[in-house]
Lab assay of single mutants.
Amino acid sequence: DEDELTGILKKLSLEKYQPIFEEQEVDMEAFLTLTDGDLKELGIKTDGSRQQILAAISELNAG
C-alpha cells in the first residue's frame, strides 16, 4: 500500500510529503478518504500541493 502511495506522490513531484503520511500511518485506503481539511491538519500548507493531492485522490476514487 505504502509503495503505491509513494508512487502517486512521486508522480505529483510531492514525495517530500511522504514522511508526513508515513508518520501519521496514512495507508492507501486512508489516503483515498482525505479531505482538504485533513491535508491541512497533516501539515501540507501549500494550496497547490493540496489541490494536486485532492485531484489525484478523486481520480483514483473515480477508478
Rank of each mutant, 00 (worst) to 15 (best):
P19D: 13
L39M: 04
L60C: 14
E15F: 03
L12S: 03
D3Q: 15
R50G: 01
L5F: 11
Q51R: 11
A56Y: 10
A56C: 14
T46Y: 08
T33W: 04
T35Q: 13
Y17C: 07
T33K: 15
K11D: 09
D47P: 13
E29K: 15
Q18D: 06
L14P: 00
A56L: 09
E2M: 15
E25Y: 07
A56N: 05
G63F: 03
K45W: 08
Q51E: 10
T33Q: 12
E15M: 10
G7C: 11
T6P: 08
F31Q: 03
M28G: 08
Q51A: 11
E2F: 15
A56F: 07
E22D: 09
E22T: 11
E23Y: 03
L34W: 02
T46K: 14
D38V: 00
G43S: 04
L54W: 01
M28H: 08
L34D: 02
S49F: 07
I53L: 13
D47L: 11
L39H: 01
P19Y: 07
L12T: 05
L54Q: 07
L39G: 01
E4H: 06
K10C: 00
K40V: 14
E22C: 06
N61K: 14
P19Q: 08
A30L: 11
I57F: 01
L5M: 10
G43W: 00
E25N: 14
I44H: 01
Q52K: 11
D36G: 05
D1G: 13
E15P: 01
K45M: 14
N61F: 01
T35W: 00
E59T: 10
G43N: 06
D36V: 03
I20L: 10
E25W: 04
T35K: 12
A62T: 09
L12M: 14
L12F: 14
D47W: 06
K10F: 00
E2P: 15
G43R: 02
T35N: 11
G7S: 15
D47E: 14
L34F: 06
A55S: 14
L34M: 14
L14C: 02
G43Y: 00
L5Q: 02
I20D: 11
A30T: 10
I53D: 06
T6I: 04
K45A: 12
K45S: 14
D47Q: 12
E29F: 02
T35E: 12
E22A: 10
D3N: 11
L60S: 04
G7N: 11
L9Y: 00
Q18P: 01
E29L: 03
L54Y: 02
L14K: 00
N61D: 06
K45H: 11
T33N: 12
G63R: 15
L12C: 13
K16N: 03
V26F: 09
E4G: 07
M28S: 11
D3V: 07
S49P: 08
L34V: 05
L54N: 08
T6S: 04
E2V: 07
G43H: 03
G37R: 10
R50D: 04
N61M: 06
G43A: 03
A56E: 13
F31D: 03
E59Y: 14
A55Q: 13
Q24S: 13
G7A: 14
K10P: 03
I53A: 06
D3M: 15
G7E: 13
K45G: 10
L34N: 04
E29W: 01
D38C: 01
D3T: 10
Q18A: 14
D27M: 01
D3G: 04
T46C: 14
N61R: 14
G48R: 10
E23C: 05
I53H: 04
I20Q: 11
Q52F: 01
E15W: 02
G7P: 10
I20T: 11
L14M: 06
E25S: 11
E41Y: 06
D3L: 15
E25F: 09
E25D: 09
K11W: 05
L12V: 05
E25H: 12
D47Y: 10
V26P: 03
E29T: 10
Y17N: 06
D1N: 15
S49I: 14
Q18G: 11
I20E: 06
T35S: 14
D36H: 02
N61W: 03
P19L: 04
G7Q: 15
A62I: 06
L32C: 09
D38Q: 09
I53W: 00
L60T: 08
F31L: 06
L54K: 07
E2S: 15
I8P: 00
G48L: 12
